[in-house]
Simulated scan of single mutants.
Amino acid sequence: MSEPVSGSGDGADRAVGNGPVERLSGDRPTVVPGRLAEAPFALAGQAPWAVSDPYAAALRAGRGPLFLRRTDGWLLPLEVERWCAGADTVDLEVLDRCEGAVLDVGCGPGRLVAELAARGRTVLGIDVSEAAVAHTVRSGGQSLRRSVFEPLPGEGRWDTVLLMDGNVGIGGDPRALLDRVAALLAPGGLLIAETARVDVDERAHVQLVDVTDGHASGSPFPWARIGTRALLDRAAAGGWRTVAQWTSGERPFVALRSDRSASSSAEPPNSTAVISSQRAR
Rank of each mutant, 00 (worst) to 15 (best):
V90H: 01
L232A: 09
Q46D: 15
S8I: 11
L152N: 07
V181C: 05
G169V: 07
D127Y: 10
R119G: 00
I170Q: 07
L103T: 05
Q245H: 15
R119N: 01
L95R: 04
V161R: 06
V137N: 08
P153N: 03
A273F: 03
G166M: 05
D199W: 06
G9P: 09
V128T: 13
G171P: 05
Q278S: 14
V128F: 01
N18F: 06
L178M: 10
L92A: 12
A12W: 07
P40L: 12
M1A: 13
R251D: 01
V198F: 10
V5M: 05
A131V: 04
G171V: 06
I226V: 14
V51L: 14
S276A: 14
R180A: 01
V5N: 03
G189E: 00
V133F: 07
A50K: 06
S248F: 07
W223A: 10
R281F: 03
S248E: 08
G19C: 00
A273Q: 13
A266Y: 05
V105D: 04
A273P: 01
A134R: 15
S6N: 07
L36Q: 14
E250D: 15
V254C: 08
E250G: 11
N270K: 10
R28P: 03
G140D: 06
H205Q: 15
V148F: 01
R14H: 15
D233M: 07
S277L: 04
S147T: 08
G218Y: 03
A118W: 00
T30K: 10
R63H: 12
L177F: 08
G120F: 10
S264D: 14
L92E: 13
E3K: 13
G120C: 12
R63C: 03
D127F: 04
R97M: 04
G249K: 07
R14L: 13
D179R: 15
L68M: 10
F253P: 08
G227T: 04
D233L: 13
V181A: 00
P269C: 09
S276K: 09
H205S: 15
R35Y: 03
V102I: 13
P48D: 12
G166S: 11
T89C: 00
G141V: 02
E194S: 09
T136V: 10
E22N: 02
T242W: 00
A193I: 00
S129G: 08
G73R: 11
T30R: 15
A186I: 03
D259L: 15
L66R: 04
V31C: 02
T212M: 11
S265I: 02
R119P: 00
A262V: 12
R225E: 10
G238E: 14
R281A: 11
A230R: 11
I192Q: 04
R257H: 03
R82C: 05
L75G: 06
L59P: 04
Q278D: 12
V123Y: 04
P65N: 12
V105Y: 06
P268S: 13
P269D: 11
S143E: 07
S52M: 08
L163V: 09
G214H: 07
G227Y: 01
A255T: 08
P40R: 14
W223L: 10
A114P: 03
A131D: 02
E194A: 02
E81M: 05
F67M: 09
C84K: 07
L78I: 12
V209T: 12
T247C: 13
A132P: 04
G11L: 14
A262D: 08
